[in-house]
């Protein structure tokens, strides 16, 4: 009897805790749903064809689009990937394939520290390194700032994926007499390719949403600009400026920009998931 009661109590506690866990999960995701919902509802009403094929209008005039910011985001972010890719992948390879290298401890620590740094400080460094010596704002400097953001993400993602590659693959390669560098280049990296692509895409998505580091680097522009040495507009920057402006029409466009940004990130991450599902 006593035992039965205790057992029932234990089961009850099990149930209650399970319930709490479920509630906690919902709470954890609640804000995401709300943000997505509002962005969808408010953004869709401001989205139209013009949004993608027209440049922005001066304040007070309705209509126009954000073509220049959409193109600019892709451009600046793309430059960031190109800059971050070699450093990030090399650092990931070092951490995973040369685990005893003395450089590993500082690389890991610095990658994590970089990852935890406010993005605005990365913009600051890009400003000092590129904007000041060049004597002007440029999409390139924005790309460098975004590259700084991506490097640690790609590093840790690459390391994580490479460590999932079975030891046997490396051993088989080494047993065949292949030198280590060929094992890494010809066996390990191709196996992990999908995972690395995922990491890069996630880094891309993360950087695509950053406004703070672009304030003093890529700067923004009301015109479509594809010259990387000129100021280039980006969506997050434009969104931020529209959001704090006093114009209703711009607020609507800010929501639309949020939605487009959101869609870009979801698409990228879905692409990343799809890429990983196919291999490894």
């Amino acid at each position: 009897m006593n035992r039965g009661l205790r057992l029932r109590q234990r089961y009850l506690r099990d149930r209650v805790m399970l319930g709490l866990v479920a509630v906690g999960t919902v709470l954890a995701l609640l804000v995401l749903f709300l943000v997505m919902g509002y962005a969808l509802v408010n953004g869709l009403s401001a989205l139209n064809w013009d949004f993608f094929v027209r440049d922005m209008k001066p304040p007070g005039e309705t209509g126009g689009g954000l073509r220049q910011a959409i193109v600019g985001t892709l451009l600046v972010d793309g430059v960031g990937v190109l800059i971050a890719l070699p450093f990030g992948i090399a650092a990931g390879v070092l951490l995973s394939e040369y685990p005893d290298h003395p450089l590993n401890v500082p690389v890991r620590l610095m990658a994590d520290t970089l990852n935890g740094m406010p993005a605005i400080l990365k913009g600051l460094v890009a400003f000092v390194l590129i904007v000041k010596p060049m004597g002007g704002f440029s999409g390139l400097s924005g790309g460098v700032a975004l590259g700084f953001i991506m490097v640690p993400i790609i590093t840790r993602a690459t390391e994580g994926v490479l460590s999932l590659v079975p030891r046997e693959i490396r051993e088989a390669g080494l047993a065949l007499g292949l030198p280590r560098w060929q094992v890494i280049l010809a066996l390990v990296l191709p196996v992990a390719r999908a995972g690395i692509v995922t990491g890069v895409l996630l880094a891309f998505a993360r950087a695509a949403g950053e406004a703070a580091p672009l304030l003093f680097t890529s700067f923004g522009s009301p015109f479509l600009e594809t010259n990387l040495l000129k100021p280039i507009d980006t969506l997050p920057l434009r969104l931020f400026q529209f959001a704090i402006s006093p114009y209703e029409d711009w607020h609507r466009q800010a929501w639309a920009a949020g939605l487009v940004l959101f869609a870009m990130i979801v698409l990228t991450s879905l692409l990343a998931r799809w890429a990983t599902r196919r291999r490894l």
């Binding site: 709300l34 962005a39 949403g209 406004a211 997050p236 969104l239 607020h251 991450s269």
Partner: peptide, 23 residues
């Protein structure tokens, strides 16, 4: 759930801010 958690991390700060000030 895992995907949504990743997404929560990926939503840009400015989008949270936008929702924050308006809603």
């Amino acid at each position: 759930i895992n995907y949504l958690l990743d997404l929560t991390a990926a939503v840009p700060s400015v989008v949270y801010g936008l929702w924050g000030i308006f809603v």
